[in-house]
């Protein structure tokens, strides 16, 4: 029990705690190990902290941009596949007969074709046979 007129100066001043034996001999080495480990940790931790903080949203933005770009590219590709697959054969035939006009380069190719020995059945093909051929290739199921 403490006295009623107790003063702090009545208690002998001493450090009541202890450390494990040899602790202060080992501590400098442990600190040096931590500092050298930090030195070898690479360039990023040593970067000026505000710079690291500024880099973080930029990197995030870049990741989002790349993600959106690839996502939209794949979606466009799918759309093209779906749309082409949905076009009926007759419309493709109409398109080819209306818009697929011959150009000078095609004539140039025709000259080279003329020099080749093409089978007679290919050159003398009738319109009906051509349509039958198209039907045979099942345009609806072709992949592009």
């Amino acid at each position: 029990m403490m006295k009623k007129d107790f003063k702090l100066s009545d208690i002998p001043k001493r450090n009541p705690y202890q450390v494990p034996e040899g602790y202060f001999d080992r501590l400098p080495m442990q600190v040096m190990e931590r500092t050298s480990a930090r030195e070898q940790a690479g360039w990023l931790p040593n970067l000026w902290q505000p710079l690291r903080l500024a880099m973080a949203p930029l990197l995030l933005l870049l990741l989002v941009f790349v993600g959106v770009y690839y996502y939209s590219a794949f979606t466009e590709q799918d759309k093209v596949l779906v749309n082409l697959a949905a076009v009926p054969d007759t419309e493709i035939m109409n398109y080819l007969s209306t818009y697929a006009t011959l150009e000078t380069t095609d004539f140039a190719e025709l000259n080279t074709l003329r020099e080749q020995e093409l089978p007679a059945e290919v050159l003398n093909i009738s319109a009906q046979t051509a349509e039958e051929e198209l039907e045979y290739y099942h345009l609806n199921t072709l992949d592009y």
Partner: peptide
């Protein structure tokens, strides 16, 4: 170390904090 130890009491905590201070 002793400055920290008197505040956190536990040796392991004081050891860790002392090393962190010197780092």
């Amino acid at each position: 170390y002793w400055h920290i130890r008197k505040m956190v009491i536990d040796h392991d905590d004081a050891d860790d904090l002392t090393q962190e201070v010197f780092v």
